[in-house]
């Protein structure tokens, strides 16, 4: 399975880690089923939609959590969240080069309401606490369901994010916004608009993901390994930098209403062509524009 987008969570792990290095923690035989889904008489999964374990990424010892978008849109419930949080606890004791999150999720699993929200909060805190300890946490986003809700915040807390053009990253999904404020506010069926707003290319051009890759598992693998090696300390100076970056973003782009406005401001003469550019070409062009 070469496409990251099409792959399941388990196929992604197989495609990204060094062959033979994978050891799953709480595998399906542990039967960690969601009691809340059972109470609602809904289908359950043996791993509750997240695969966790340890392995090697281009030789680097890493811990990995991979969400399965096919199961409840990758939404986080009590058990799934606890598995991820426990993995981060493990990172404290184990000698690892980093923690890798293969995210595909709509955020809080609404069927688990309060338990889902608290679980997402615990994941966010675990990511931040791990980074404070100097362990890089890197995320990949390139699946069908994107990465939204509180898990969008979780992704933003990571040391770095690898995305493909097909990936989407945000807080409130387009459907949620359309439900709240109507189709004029955000037409969730307008695919081009959705990708101009939350898609991989837009996130890359804004600097919300560090690396943009083609939708191929090997591309994700090498980008994730590079991200783990690069790392970045969470310290006051870096947060002050981030504060300035986000301030300037509001100042510069705050009045715009479309991704194309932002891309034009960034120097793209023909912003309408950005969605058509190959990944390499986009990266090269954006580098030139940043240097200019």
């Amino acid at each position: 399975m070469q496409s990251y987008y099409e792959a399941t969570a388990r196929e992604r792990i197989a495609g990204i880690l060094d062959p033979g290095s994978w050891h799953e923690i709480l595998p399906p035989t542990a039967r960690t089923l969601s009691p809340h889904l059972k109470a609602l008489d809904l289908p359950v999964a043996f791993d509750d939609g997240v695969v966790i374990g340890s392995g090697a990424l281009e030789g680097l010892p890493v811990l990995v959590a991979a969400q399965e978008g096919g199961f409840m849109g990758g939404a986080v419930g009590e058990v799934q969240g606890a598995k991820i949080v426990g993995l981060f606890e493990r990172a404290k004791a184990a000698r690892v080069a980093g923690v890798v999150l293969l995210l595909e999720t709509g955020g809080v699993r609404l069927q688990e309401a309060n338990a889902g929200l608290i679980a997402v909060s615990e994941v966010i805190r675990a990511i931040c606490a791990t980074r404070v300890r100097g362990i890089p946490v890197v995320a990949a986003i390139g699946g069908k369901f994107g990465c939204f809700g509180g898990m969008g915040i979780a992704a933003g807390c990571c040391t770095s994010i690898v995305m493909s053009e097909e990936g989407r990253l945000g807080l409130s999904g387009p459907e949620v916004i359309e439900t709240a404020h109507g189709v004029e506010e955000f037409d969730s069926l307008d695919r081009a608009l959705v990708w101009r707003t939350v898609g991989g290319k837009h996130r890359f051009l804004l600097g919300d993901c560090a690396t943009l890759v083609d939708d191929r598992q090997p591309a994700f693998r090498s980008a994730l390994a590079q991200a783990v090696r690069t790392g970045e300390e969470l310290e006051l100076a870096s947060l002050e930098r981030e504060q300035r970056t986000l301030d300037e973003r509001l100042e510069r782009f705050g009045a715009y209403t479309d991704g194309e406005d932002i891309w034009r401001d960034l120097g793209f003469d023909k912003p309408a062509n950005v969605p058509l550019l190959a990944t390499d070409a986009l990266i090269a062009l954006s580098k030139r524009l940043r240097a200019a």
Binding site: L171, L234, L246, G254
Partner: peptide
């Protein structure tokens, strides 16, 4: 959170993540 297209366009998830990291630090 504010449920608007503009907030998503500007990357509100990253703003929230920044706040969360500030609290952690």
């Amino acid at each position: 959170q504010r449920l608007r297209h503009r907030d998503e366009l500007l990357g509100i998830h990253r703003y929230m993540a920044h706040l969360a990291q500030c609290v952690e630090l």
